[in-house]
């Protein structure tokens, strides 16, 4: 994390990226995203609908693919990491470089797969926000994968935990939240609900898009919360800040744990 020896980090990032951009899964991931984007946007003459489909694809697939791929990658690279660590270089710099290369490759895949078709077919703020959302989610779930990696003893366990995390944030969390909202709908729970949204990076990403696509409807609710919070730039700032926290908190925690991890 400190800036010493950044040339070494650059070197590691460069070569790991060289490996990753020839990785078959990354290539297939990019291709599938591109095919989905082109077909969804091309088939329909209604860009808003295509954008929504891409949002759903993003929210559903980016987290699980990112966390699974990253976790497996970290575990598979253990021996390589050890070799790098036997060189005179700081521990955290090695793992941070690998993380940075990984997020560059995965977000690169997303940006190429979804971003470029969007640029040509539906350029606009919504498209930019969608690409930003997908990229942020990639960063978040890579950080979580790194945390899973440093905390788990073996690969099988790590992959299991990664799947559970992805499923929890994709489906289970919202289920619990809607149950909460239903049960306490008679009470002023607006603030609590916004607070709870911050606990799920996927929801935060979705809210970012909601603020683009549905701000007109959000303005229609008389609740002060919706207007003050979601109907103003504050909502965007809040969501992005929380997502960045979701990137950095697990990342820094993982780096700290890795400092004393036995390989």
């Amino acid at each position: 994390m400190n800036g010493a020896n950044t040339p070494q980090m650059k070197t590691i990032i460069k070569y790991v990226l060289v490996d990753l951009i020839r990785n078959r899964i990354i290539l297939v991931y990019t291709a599938i995203l591109a095919v989905l984007a082109v077909s969804v946007l091309g088939l329909d003459d209604n860009p808003a609908k295509g954008l929504l489909s891409l949002l759903n694809i993003t929210l559903l697939f980016v987290p699980i693919i990112t966390i699974l791929f990253s976790t497996i990658y970290f575990f598979n690279a253990i021996e390589f990491t050890e070799l790098l660590l036997s060189q005179p270089i700081k521990r955290q710099q090695v793992i941070l470089s690998e993380y940075l290369a990984l997020v560059s490759a995965l977000s690169g895949a997303y940006i190429v797969g979804i971003g470029i078709p969007l640029l040509f077919l539906v350029s606009g703020t919504e498209s930019l926000v969608l690409v930003a959302t997908g990229t942020l989610l990639t960063l978040v779930f890579s950080s979580l994968a790194l945390l899973v990696f440093v905390k788990s003893k073996d690969k099988t366990k790590g992959i299991g935990i990664a799947i559970i995390i992805a499923l929890f944030f994709t489906v289970l969390f919202d289920g619990l939240l809607i149950a909460f909202i239903y049960s306490f709908s008679d009470y002023p729970i607006d603030k609590a609900v916004v607070g709870m949204i911050a606990l799920n990076p996927i929801d935060l990403g979705r809210v970012l898009m909601l603020l683009q696509l549905d701000v007109a409807v959000l303005m229609g609710y008389s609740g002060a919360l919706f207007k003050k919070f979601l109907g103003s730039p504050l909502g965007n700032v809040f969501s992005v800040t929380c997502m960045l926290l979701w990137v950095f908190v697990p990342l820094i925690a993982a780096l700290r744990i890795f400092r004393n991890k036995d390989l």
């Binding site: 021996e79 390589f80 070799l83 060189q87």
Partner: peptide
Amino acid sequence: YMPQIGRYPDNMTIAQVIALIKEIRP
């Protein structure tokens, strides 16, 4: 150090691995 199991990133070439280690030790 020569590790017991040498596992390297799949798509790196021998030249790249050697270059990587050399560049880490400027």
